[in-house]
């Protein structure tokens, strides 16, 4: 259990080059009936419902903090970040844990789907008319059978408000 994140740590950061490779593996997730994907190599863990500690005075996108095997993980409310309405309280969500510059973040989503291997042929740049707030965090769109999948860019997703200032 405790070393489950080791392989992922060593391989992280390689998922950015999506267009060049023939096919890419994505962890899919749904948020408010939209399908999103994150390159599988960036994902450290998938968690079920977690007890989250609220953090007062934190930016609204920060849902709180949780304990993942002795490490403190900052939980990000992805709905808030994508300007979607909050999830109904009675529905338990799931989380995808990602690593950014050595810090762990847990992306709170509605549900996590299967891992899809997608071909570059189905890949497309963001349409120019896409909501700019989504364009900011997405690197492109995959055309799936009967559905579109938005590829989320983790560093950009986590770069909200004062994060940059805080890091600087």
């Amino acid at each position: 259990m405790s070393n489950a994140n080791l392989p992922a740590t060593t391989r992280k950061g390689k998922g950015d080059d999506l267009v060049t490779v023939g096919s890419q593996d994505y962890v899919t997730m749904t948020i408010a009936d939209h399908l999103f994907g994150i390159p599988v190599l960036q994902v450290q863990d998938v968690l079920g419902h977690q007890r989250i500690t609220r953090i007062p005075l934190a930016p609204p996108e920060v849902a709180g903090a949780l304990n993942l095997r002795g490490r403190i993980v900052t939980a990000i409310d992805v709905r808030q970040r994508l300007h979607l309405p909050s999830r109904a309280k009675d529905k338990p969500g799931m989380s995808i844990v990602v690593d950014l510059r050595g810090e762990l973040y847990s992306l709170m989503v509605d549900s996590v789907g299967e891992v899809l291997s997608l071909s570059a042929q189905d890949y497309e740049r963001n349409p120019a008319t896409l909501d700019p707030r989504w364009r900011e965090v997405s690197t492109g769109i995959y055309r799936l059978n009967g559905q579109l999948m938005v590829v989320l860019d983790v560093p950009r997703l986590l770069n909200f408000a004062n994060l940059e200032a805080a890091l600087g």
Partner: peptide
């Protein structure tokens, strides 16, 4: 444990930790 970089600007907290019962606390 130091707080996440996203939260470092909040000067009310000096860090965070995990309590005996496993919950995170500021």
């Amino acid at each position: 444990k130091p707080v996440s970089p996203i939260l470092r600007h909040i000067e009310m907290f000096s860090g965070n930790t995990i309590l005996g019962d496993g919950s995170v606390i500021m």
